[in-house]
Computed example of a mutant assay.
Amino acid sequence: MNEPVASETYAAQVRRLADLTARVAEQRAEAHTWYDRQCAAADRAVADAVEQLHRAEEELVAAREQQERVDAEVAHLWQQLRARLGGGRRLGGPPAPAGNGSIDPVLPLARARDLLDRTGQPGELPGSVNPLLALCGVAGAVLAYALGAGARALGVGYGGDLAVGLPVLALMVTLLGPLIGLVPARVLADRRHAVLGPRPITVVLGTGLLTTVLLLVLGR
Results as ranks from 00 to 15, higher is better:
115 L>W: 04
156 V>M: 09
125 L>Q: 02
100 N>L: 07
138 V>Q: 06
171 L>P: 14
122 P>R: 01
38 Q>M: 07
55 R>C: 14
111 R>W: 14
5 V>L: 10
163 A>L: 03
109 L>A: 04
183 V>W: 01
73 E>R: 15
121 Q>C: 04
180 I>E: 06
186 R>A: 15
161 D>E: 14
201 I>R: 14
89 R>M: 14
69 R>H: 11
187 V>S: 06
65 E>G: 04
99 G>L: 06
23 R>H: 00
193 H>E: 10
14 V>W: 13
2 N>I: 05
77 L>F: 00
59 E>P: 07
194 A>G: 02
148 G>N: 02
119 T>W: 04
132 L>M: 13
143 L>A: 10
159 G>V: 15
52 Q>W: 04
68 E>F: 01
75 A>C: 07
119 T>C: 06
140 G>Q: 02
72 A>E: 14
186 R>V: 13
49 A>G: 05
71 D>G: 10
171 L>H: 02
175 L>A: 15
181 G>R: 08
173 V>T: 13
203 V>Y: 01
210 L>I: 15
60 L>F: 12
166 L>Y: 12
135 L>D: 00
84 R>L: 10
69 R>L: 15
154 L>V: 14
201 I>T: 10
20 L>R: 00
66 Q>A: 08
106 V>A: 08
115 L>T: 00
200 P>A: 01
140 G>Y: 07
48 D>P: 03
19 D>G: 10
16 R>L: 11
205 L>K: 11
25 A>N: 09
124 E>H: 09
17 L>E: 14
89 R>C: 09
172 M>N: 07
79 Q>P: 14
107 L>K: 12
3 E>G: 08
127 G>I: 03
67 Q>V: 10
110 A>D: 02
126 P>H: 06
19 D>R: 13
168 V>P: 04
165 G>K: 10
75 A>K: 00
121 Q>W: 14
47 A>N: 07
125 L>P: 01
84 R>S: 06
34 W>P: 15
167 P>M: 03
51 E>D: 09
12 A>P: 06
199 R>Q: 13
68 E>T: 15
71 D>S: 12
16 R>E: 02
94 P>E: 08
150 G>Q: 08
122 P>G: 02
204 V>E: 10
150 G>V: 12
102 S>A: 08
50 V>L: 01
90 R>T: 09
210 L>F: 07
6 A>M: 05
63 A>T: 08
190 D>Q: 13
157 G>F: 08
195 V>P: 05
72 A>L: 14
44 R>S: 03
